[in-house]
Write a protein that binds this DNA or RNA. Structure first.
Length: 478
RNA sequence: GCCCGCGUAGCUCAAUUUGGCAGAGCAGGGGACUCUUAAUCCCAAGGUUCACGGUUCGAGUCCGUGCGCGGGCACCA
């Protein structure tokens, strides 16, 4: 019978005080917590009256402030000690002087650990060396930290820990925090742009009884009350187009979408999509809208239109190059193709070479069952993808509005599925019914928000722009 | 699912090439220090080298299997 290698956290806290499997740095903290409680100190305060953030306090020389945050560095000098306090707005130096605080409070300050959450009450001043600081009168402990922080100078490097324990990444790596703040600002800017143009933001179902709107393997779940399998949505498209039929002429949704596929630096099983539909618009209008969205997003992220991604110069200045898929393949391979052959040749031989923003136009009808055919050549549809740095960032069509054609396209997809293409588009009878009531001419656009954020924040992997990316189960608890 | 690489102290990294006592910095412990800011100085401590098995007198190092992470491929018509 083997004894457990490590105990799970949360059980028998007193037993853990002497748990020989725990690192000494953690045992020491627990012991200190016990001593504090014995001395009558409550190590987890109910609240603290914070009057200013560290950023606000910096501008208030000579004034009394109450700031609060995490202790992230300390430099003891005996009778005078320094520490850095970090809050959501930044950092400020704390200065503890024995002759001002008194012996007991000064000793208590020196007894604090890096990682502790404290309040800091005192007067803002500038040290002889020019550092804006708080001259402490009081430093109440607000929350005792029982685990050591990552290395103060190098930060947290281990990528697995950064993803699994994102809070440590956010505490120790300010540049990581900045990426997520930019992500939020990008999404806000996109919303603002669309709202200003009269688009209505909506929420459509995530649980679908048909996984339609794209080519992808869905996640399956089970609805007990209906005793029926459901799917997590793989796209937003068909519900939003039902709203177009319903007279919501400008509509969009920003939402999580799920695809049951491999994980890679560019794919996470759940990701954020923007889909926009505009009645009486075409895919040319969607190209201009896409350009406007990219420009607004870059501005929100604080990224210049002429920038670089992973060392490669990228110019986001519109208008972007517009070329048909057929011409691009012809130009780069010398072959004039159509249908699936064209798409295959494009993906393997052309797309990786498209580095600057490029609208690739007019896809084969076979792989585009929801898009309108070109009037001059019905083998192709009015569709574009926006390729930047070799990757797809947007996908848009002049939407198919002919219910008879739509039914035939779905039937072709059903035949493909019967022939073994598991990801072929399923037949959505209810959607065809909606279209039969009459759908106005419409342009539609989908943008992969995560990938746009990757581009604008120069992050190499989609995991770096997702707070909690999908990982396998951790091998053990530490 | 397949191929390649990686896994050493709480954190950041050495030692792996060529098998020979597992080391440093930070953090933590003890001490000195009233203008430091990667503070400095002195002392002591800290390890199931991812796990299990094998080869060997001897394995962090070589071999096998498993787990996790990273990259590539497949999937993403």
């Amino acid at each position: 019978m083997e004894r457990p290698l490590r105990r799970q956290p949360g059980q028998d806290p007193h037993g853990q005080l002497s748990d020989p499997d725990l690192p000494a740095v953690i045992r020491d903290r627990r012991e200190k917590l016990r001593r504090l409680r014995e001395a009558g100190v409550e190590p987890y305060a109910r609240s603290f009256e914070r009057t200013h953030t560290t950023a606000q306090a910096r501008a208030l020389l000579g004034e009394r402030v109450q700031v609060a945050g995490r202790l992230v560095a300390r430099r003891g000098m005996g009778g005078m000690a320094f520490a850095d306090l970090q809050d959501g707005a930044g950092r400020i130096q704390l200065v503890a002087r024995r002759d001002r605080l008194g012996e007991a409070a000064h000793a208590a300050f020196l007894d604090l650990d890096l990682g502790d959450i404290v309040g800091a009450e005192g007067t803002v001043f500038t040290t002889k060396k020019g550092e804006v600081s708080v001259d402490l009168d009081r430093v109440p402990l607000l929350s005792k930290s029982l685990r050591p922080l990552p290395e103060k100078w190098h930060g947290l490097k281990d990528v697995e820990t950064r993803y699994r324990q994102r809070y440590l990444d956010l505490i120790s790596n300010p540049e990581s925090r900045a990426v997520f703040e930019k992500r939020t600002r990008v999404i806000g800017a996109v919303r603002r742009l669309l709202d200003e143009r009269g688009f209505l933001e909506v929420e459509t179902p995530i649980l679908h009884d048909i996984a339609s709107g794209g080519h992808a393997r869905p996640f399956t779940t089970h609805y007990n009350a209906l005793d029926r399998d459901f799917f997590l949505r793989i796209a937003l498209e068909l519900h939003l187009k039902r709203l177009i039929v319903g007279g919501v002429e400008r509509v969009y949704e920003i939402g999580r979408t799920f695809r049951n596929e491999g994980i890679s630096p560019r794919h996470n099983p759940e990701f954020t999509m923007l889909e926009v539909y505009q009645a009486y618009a075409t895919y040319e209008d969607m190209m201009r809208l896409t350009e406007d969205i990219i420009v607004a997003a870059a501005e929100a992220a604080g990224t210049s239109l002429t920038t670089s991604y992973q060392g490669e110069d990228i110019d986001f200045t519109p208008p972007y190059r517009r070329e048909t898929m057929r011409d691009l393949v012809l130009e780069l391979t010398g072959r004039d193709l159509a249908g699936n052959e064209l798409d295959d040749a494009f993906e393997t031989e052309v797309q990786p070479q498209l580095r600057q923003p490029t609208f690739v136009l007019d896809y084969p009808v076979e792989i585009s069952p929801l898009a309108r055919r070109r009037a001059d050549d019905p083998r192709f549809v009015e569709r574009f993808e926006l390729i930047i740095a070799g990757r797809e960032h947007a996908n848009a069509f002049t939407e198919l509005t002919d219910p008879i054609d739509q039914r035939e396209r779905f039937e072709q997809q059903a035949a493909a599925r019967a022939a073994g293409f598991e990801e072929a588009h399923p037949f959505d009878e209810d959607f065809v019914t909606a279209m039969e009531y009459g759908m106005p001419p419409t342009g539609g656009l989908g943008i992969g928000i995560d990938r746009v954020v990757m581009l604008l924040t120069d992050q190499p992997a989609i995991r770096d722009v997702l707070l909690f990316p999908q990982l396998k189960e951790a091998p053990r608890q530490g």
